[in-house]
Structures are given as C-alpha cells and as structure tokens.
Design a protein around this nucleic acid. Structure first.
Length: 861
RNA sequence: GGGUGUUUAGCUCAGCGGGAGAGCGUUUCCUUCACACGGAAAAGGUCACUGGUUCGAUACCAGUAACACCCACCA
C-alpha cells in the first residue's frame, strides 16, 4: 500500500541502481527493432552539474525512455569533455591557492594534477547523472581524452593536414594574456566597455602643421609603422607623403592614404599597428610594413617600449599618456563606450597579437555543410529558425585557430626535426631522439566535434556500433553552443563520414533565475539542482524543466512551478493509492470488453483514447508542454474529478459491475502511470510496482496504444450532459445562498442523461428526489439543447431572473454572430462545408434555447 | 551596421485561421470515507499598436514601438 503522501526521497531510493544493474540502459543491439540513437552533450569535467546540464539531458532521457517503450532499440552514449582551457584554468587556480604555478610542476606534473581533478569530478558527475535519472548506456561511456578519441583526433588532424585543410600560419589572433594561450574568434566575448579615446598631436616633418590621431590603445604606439588617412580627405590632402613624428618614441612614420580609413570617424587619421590589430595587419601586408610586437605573452611591454619595458599594458598606457601630456602632445581625452573583446574563460581583455598558430581552412568544410542543408539529408533544427544561424555562420566563417598554448588537451601530432627544423605531421610518433613534438594542444572543440562518430568507434568504420547506430537520430542542446559544437560536429562528420551526424537537433534556451537574469557566478544567483531535488524531488524538477519551456526560448526558474509539479505528482500518487485500495489483494485484471461497459466507463475510455493520441503525437514531435498538458487535463478533470468519484457508485453495486469498474480503473491508472513515466520515472516505477500484475520494472512496459474501437461519442456526450447538470446545480446553490450539500428536488425533461444517471445526480448534486417529465418544464432555469432541468427549491426569484437574463444576452449575441456569419455569401461559398453545417446546427440550437429562456423569463414575472 | 526572438489574465507562461487557456495568486465556501501538496463555486483579458490578406485574424503578411539576444574589425 502506498503512503498517504508521496515522499520523493523514499521513492527515489535505490531505483536507479537497480535499473542500471539490470542492464535496462544498455542498448540491445536487437536487429528486430528500429533504432534510436543519441549521444549526450558531454559535460565539462570542470565542476558540478548545473541546471543547464539538466536542460541538456532530461529531454534526452524522456525521449529515450519513451522510445524504449515504443519498441525501439535505444542507444544513449554518455561521456564527458576534458574541456581543455576551462579545466586547465580551474586546475591552475587551485594550484595558485597553494602558491604553485603550472610551470613549477612542469608539463607532466601538471597533467597528473589535471587527471586527478578529472577523476574527482567525473565521480561527482556520475553521482549526479544517477540523481537525475539518466538512462545512459554506461557500457559505452567515453571521454574526450580516452584512447579512442585520441586516435580519432590524430587521424583527423593528419588527414586534414594532408588535404591542405590544416595549416600553420602567422596571423593576428586573440591572445588571452592570463591563460597565455591563443583563442578562436568565438571564444572571445565582446562587451561594451567604457574606455578612453586619446587624441594626440603628431608633428609633421618639414611643416608647421601637426595632425591629430586618436587611439584607444596608446601602448601599442611602439609598434606603429605609419599613419593613414583617407585619400579623399581634403583636410590632409597636402600632407600625404610627408612624415610625422610618433609622440610615443619619436619615430618617423610615413603619412599615407588608404580608402580603408573612415573619413567620419575620430579625426580621420589612424595609426597603423600591424602586429596588434587585424585591420592594421592587412594594411601592413599590403604595404610591406614590418610587424613589430610590443608585448610578451603576459601582456607586459617588451624592449620595443623602451623605458616602459616590463610594465603591464595598462601601467604603460597610463605612464605613456602622462609623458605625452608633459611634452605637450596630448590634445584631449574623451570618454567612450566601445566594444572590447574578453576571454570567454578568464574574462580578461584579449590582446590581438601576431602569432604563429595552427588553423583549419574553413571554407571547403563550411561549403559542404551549406550544400548538405539543401539536400534531403539535412539536419533538421527544431525550432526551424536556428538553421539560419548555422548557415549564416557557415557563410561568413573565418579560419579556425585550433592551437592552444595549454597542456591539458590533445597534443598536436606535429614534430620538428631537431637538426633541420623540418616539419613532420604524423599519426605515429617518429624517433623522438631526432624529433621534438609541437608544444601546443588542440582547441577542446576540435575533439568534441568528432563526438557522435568517434564514440561509435570511428575511424574504424567496421565496429558494430558505428555500423548500427551511426548516424544518430537526435541531438538536444542549447542555442548558445550551435557555433561551438553543433556546427563543428556537422562539418567534421560530413567531411569524414559523408553523413550528417544526426537527423534532428532540438534547441533549448537558457534557464534564467526567477527575476529573468542570467545565472552567473558573479551574481551568485545560480541554482544547484541537487538542492532542488532535495526539496521537491527529481521527478518534479524533470517535469518542470521539460514542460514549462518552449523549444528555443529562455525560461525562468520557478520554485513555485516545481512545487505545483510536485503537487500534481502527488495527485496521481493518491489516485493510484485509491485505485490500489479498491482493487484489493486478490484482484486479477481482465481485458476491457466494450460490450459490457457502462456509459460512464465508455466515456472515460473514449477520453483516455483521445489523450493517448494527443500525448503520443506531441511526444513524437518533442512538444513536451503539449503532451503533458493533455495528460494533466485528463488526470484532473476527466479521471480524478469525474470518473474516479462517480465510479464509487458502481463499485458499491458489487458483482459484475464492481469487477468491470475495477478493470476500467486499473486500465486507466496504469496508462496514466505509463504516460507520466518518461517525465517522472521514479514515482512512476513506485506506483507501477504497487499495481497488481506488474512486470519486473516499468522499463519493460509498452507505451499505451490508441485504439479507435474503444471510442464512444454518444457516451461521452451523455456523461458531459450529466457533468453539466451537476455543475449547474452546484452553481445554482451557490448563487442562491444554499449550502452545497443542501438537498434539492430535481425535475428533468425529457429524461435523465443516460440510464442510471439519476443515482449520480442524487449523489453529486445532493438531490433528494429526481423526477422526469414528459412535458416541457415551467420555469426551468437550465436549458440544454435537448433537455431541461428544474431545481424545485425556494430560489431567489431575482437571482434566477438575473441568471436567465444573462443567459438570454449571451444567446442573443451568439445568434447574432451566427446569423451574420450564415448570411454572408462569402462564408457560405468559401468556408468548408463541415464548418457551415456546424454553424447552422449551433444557430438552431441557440435559437431553440433562447426561445425557452424567454418563455421562462416571462413565466417568472 | 546586419540578424533573430518576445509582447496573451495581477505574476510566470502555453496556445492558435472559425467565440481565449494553464500554473500560482485573488474572492466565497468545505476538514465528506484517494489526496488540504485537496475539493466546490467564482472574479479577472479590445491576445502591444497600425495597416493589409481572408468569408473570417489573437493567430498569416508588412510596418511601428518597447524589451531581450546573436553576429560584425569601427581605429
């Protein structure tokens, strides 16, 4: 027997371990079944799981559990991401607390620390997966730095290199001076920061004139090679070709003209620093300037900065501006808000710097994606609009800087001959007496991009998993990583396997706090899923996460909604508890035989069938909100409020009627449990186990099937009328200040809604006597299309009249609308026939009803 | 500078070419034998605005406004 209240802690206890031990999560490799395969978005081993991970994985879990019940052979590959830069930053921070730098430990020692860190957090993540109930196949768990992935990464690198799609080049890249590594463009977050715009005057050689040049980064002036103006700029026409004096260091700089310069910006004169700005770099190449780097890897000034050498870039800026001011070349300083690049990981201001790095040539790979999206094999995005984000990015993509000056990651398989310096790119290590390996590691997304196929055994394309489960069916992830991850999986997969890695991508939004703010460390508004689970249980959290959101849109965390999800589960729990009590110890279910069912039974089963149909079709299209709503309405309105209460009467009749009612109750509660199961597997298993005739686990059950033979429209209409009558009588009592349980006499014309309905009326409307009339009723306040109901009780006439008048008004406006519609020739000729007939019927009914209402009103006066 | 999303009940949000829905909150009542994490009854909305398409628009199209987000090298 279930407890009176659903206790989530008790319910959750031990179930996950049991499912796992029994092997229910393991893909069956059952050739007779259709395949459904997905890979987990691998969480970073940087820390504990947060609500974002819950959003990444719970929809997957719901779908996997649903698909298993639907008879699919489901493979869900779990795993984790080494998250190169993010993890290294964390490990370094931890070491720093102990006063150790990574250089103190050396590469090997540092990697040892990193693996220790990984093991610790992998353990935590495993515990959390269990807590949230992910039905992942642990026999196939992977890690982005495991041997298989290592081989895949090497293979991909070497292949792309040999195809000319990976190259080494010296370019302006985004440099993170804190982590001391290069970053790719999308790892740079642009923010509008308040800064200062410095106006300096440059003396012009051989002229009395000077020109004013503005900059936000004076410290880079030591790397300047020229000053540019626009060739059309009349202000500087006569000065072009002369030399100007750099007020920072006295260098002679040519004053040149190039159309790149925007006439209207600043003073129209721009300094050119080819080694510290991407645009200046282009100019530098165009005019063959030297590339002068003025800072080191930590953004401290180098020897080019003269006396400022060794200063941090900002110290230097301050000191330099002060000095220029003192020698009279500072014109003014303006406050200015401008877009500044920050490192996604360390948050520090990125320094654009000339550097030799490895790049992936993106154009051919991106074109392949664009071409594929025009074929039938395209990746379908849900919602559809996110496909545009992908294609837009692919159209404008720049080469991908993949080398990172980190230690935690896949080391680049490039080797340099110690003698000649000759470069060797190879999957197998050469004689290390002759060669040294490139120090850099790869961008972490380089390996995550291979996730869907490398986890299936690729580059070996003959593994059973690759053969059977690749390409995968589906991917669920946040819109914030479409560029980082989704797009990279697609182009890597197309290039290396000739297939898109998944058929569909379901995109979710971000979860925000209750005030709608982003959850962040600095705000301290993050929510630990484990705390929520402690308070409300994982099933309530799962239900909330998947049913209160719309694909692609951000959602707000709401403790209130989680509580109400918990209350809903408790409702089902108690319905189940009741049914269980009713069935008793020795109940044995019999199949439903429609011929023997009562009107009430037929009506509820009809409604169940409609619910199954709606829930199934919405589940198929991942519309969890709609699916859950349909089930919720059925549970509350049709089952708990109506059938469950009314069935108490047929149960009391005993005999066959009792047995049939039990069968129906069993049939319905079981289907409810099976439909809530993917959302709330723990409570569903508990309830399922409490039912008679159950299997070893709910995980072995089949999903409820829609059966049109069990539909019965007439019964539904009859029961609806009964419910309407009950509602009207209750309302009548409430508006006439009668107690809800006050006994009333009822008169019905022409007959009760269905045979036996009187008993329900008397119980649920507290009727002492129910008579039927062959004639229409005098003064009946309740008029239905084919029935009338009179409550014979001292009613307040004024209240009654008010009610009837209200109804009259409503009916009149309805009729007006109907007549207007039906007198419109356009409507009659163009609207679907069924709609026209429906409106005609409605009009007739309303007219009939209005007529009766008017009659009643006059009889009351 | 481009692009996208949102605007529906007091709050948080679903929904949708044929008389607007939920949760929470509010009002009145009820501890009756599944559930007070409950039940009954009720109040509450020109579905942002302006045009257009349509027999019919909250829904489709165009524009406007507010808010949010993404992309882009503004020195």
């Amino acid at each position: 027997m279930l407890d009176k209240h659903y206790d989530h802690k008790k319910v959750e206890e031990g179930k996950y371990e049991k499912w796992k031990e029994k092997g229910y999560f393991t893909a069956l490799d059952d050739k007779s079944k259709p395949i459904f395969s997905i890979v987990i978005p691998p969480p970073n081993v940087t820390g504990k799981l947060h609500l974002g991970h819950v959003m990444d994985t719970i929809p997957d879990d719901i779908i996997c559990r649903y698909k298993r019940m639907k008879g699919y052979d489901v493979l869900w590959v779990p795993g984790m991401d080494h998250a190169g830069i993010a993890t290294q930053a964390k490990v370094e921070a931890k070491l720093r607390e102990q006063g150790i730098s990574r250089f103190d430990l050396g590469r090997e020692g540092f990697l040892k620390e990193s693996w220790k860190w990984k093991d610790e957090y992998a353990k935590t993540i495993h515990e959390q997966w269990a807590k949230i109930g992910l039905s992942v196949d642990y026999t196939r768990e992977r890690f982005t730095l495991d041997e298989g992935l290592n081989n895949a990464v090497k293979h991909v690198f070497v292949t792309l290199y040999n195809e000319g799609l990976i190259y080494q080049g010296e370019r302006i890249i985004n440099w993170d001076p804190e982590l001391q590594t290069a970053l790719s463009n999308i790892e740079v977050v642009h923010q509008d920061d308040e800064g200062e715009f410095f106006y300096f005057s440059y003396d012009v050689e051989g002229s009395e004139q000077s020109i004013i040049v503005a900059t936000t980064r004076p410290e880079t002036m030591f790397g300047d090679t020229a000053v540019f103006v626009n060739p059309k700029d009349k202000r500087y026409k006569d000065l072009v070709g002369k030399f100007v004096i750099n007020p920072a260091n006295g260098d002679r700089l040519p004053l040149m003209a190039d159309p790149y310069v925007d006439l209207s910006f600043g003073t129209g004169a721009m300094k050119c620093t080819p080694a510290h700005d991407p645009n200046d770099f282009n100019l530098g190449k165009k005019y063959n300037f030297p590339f002068i780097k003025v800072m080191d890897e930590t953004a401290h000034m180098n020897e080019k900065a003269g006396k400022y050498m060794g200063m941090d870039r900002y110290e230097c800026r301050k000191a330099l501006v002060e000095d220029i001011k003192n020698n009279g070349h500072l014109v003014k300083i303006e406050k200015m808000v401008h877009s500044v690049g920050h490192s996604e990981r360390s948050g520090c201001v990125v320094e654009p710097m000339l550097s030799k790095q490895w790049f992936v040539k993106m154009k051919p790979l991106a074109d392949r994606v664009l071409a594929n999206q025009k074929t039938a094999d395209k990746v379908e995005f849900i919602p559809h609009r996110f496909e545009n984000d992908l294609t837009r990015w692919m159209k404008n993509v720049e080469d991908w800087c993949i080398s990172r000056q980190l230690w935690w990651g896949h080391r680049i398989p490039a080797y340099y001959n110690k003698e000649t310096g000759e470069l060797l790119v190879s999957e197998t290590e050469p004689d290390m007496n002759l060669y040294t390996q490139d120090e850099d590691v790869l961008d972490t997304w380089f390996s995550s991009g291979l996730w869907p196929f490398a986890t299936m055994g690729w580059p070996d394309t003959n593994t059973p998993d690759y053969q059977r489960y690749f390409p995968t069916s589906f991917l669920n992830t946040g819109y914030d990583i479409i560029f980082f991850w989704v797009s990279r999986m697609i182009f890597q997969s197309l290039h290396f396997t000739d297939k898109a890695p998944f058929k569909q991508v379901l995109i979710h939004g971000l979860i925000r706090d209750e005030k709608g703010r982003k959850m962040s460390k600095s705000l301290g508004n993050g929510i630990d899923p484990i705390d929520v689970i402690e308070r409300h249980g994982i099933d309530a959290l799962r239900y909330f996460i998947t049913t209160s959101s719309t694909p692609g849109l951000d959602m707000r965390y709401s403790e209130e909604k989680i509580s109400s999800a918990e209350a809903y589960l408790n409702k089902i729990w108690n319905a189940c508890r009741y049914v269980e009590g009713v069935l008793g110890e020795d109940y044995a279910p019999s199949p439903i035989d429609k011929k023997r069912l009562s009107t009430l039974d037929k009506a509820i089963i009809d409604k169940l069938m409609h619910t199954i149909k709606t829930v199934t079709s919405t589940m198929e299209s991942y519309q969890f909100g709609q699916a859950s709503e349909a089930l919720y309405d059925f549970v509350y309105d049709d089952f708990c409020s109506s059938y469950l209460e009314m069935s108490k009467i047929s149960l009391s009749h005993g005999g066959e009627e009792e047995k049939i009612t039990k069968d129906v109750l069993y049939f319905i509660i079981k289907d409810i449990i099976l439909m809530i199961y993917p959302y709330a597997p723990f409570i569903a298993e508990e309830m399922y186990q409490s039912l008679p005739n159950h299997l070893e686990s709910i995980m072995l059950e089949k999903y409820p099937e829609y059966n049109s033979k069990l539909l019965d429209k007439k019964s539904v209409e009859a029961v609806n009328l009964l419910n309407l009558m009950i509602k009207d009588i209750r309302n009548y009592k409430s508006t006439n200040s009668l107690a809800p349980n006050a006994k009333v006499k009822l008169l019905i014309y022409p007959n009760e809604p269905f045979k036996g309905a009187k008993e329900y009326l008397s119980r649920f409307a507290f009727a002492s006597e129910i008579l039927t009339s062959e004639k229409r009723l005098e003064g009946a306040p309740f008029i239905y299309p084919d029935a009338e109901l009179l409550v014979e009780e001292d009613a307040d006439k004024a209240v009654l009249l008010e009610k009837l008048n209200k109804e009259k008004e409503l009916l009149e406006s309805e009729i007006l609308r109907g007549e207007k519609m039906l007198s419109n020739p356009g409507f009659l000729s163009k609207a679907p026939e069924a709609k026209v007939n429906l409106e005609k019927e409605k009009l007739e009914r309303n007219k009939k009803q209005l007529f009766s209402v008017i009659e009643k009103i006059s009889s009351l006066k």
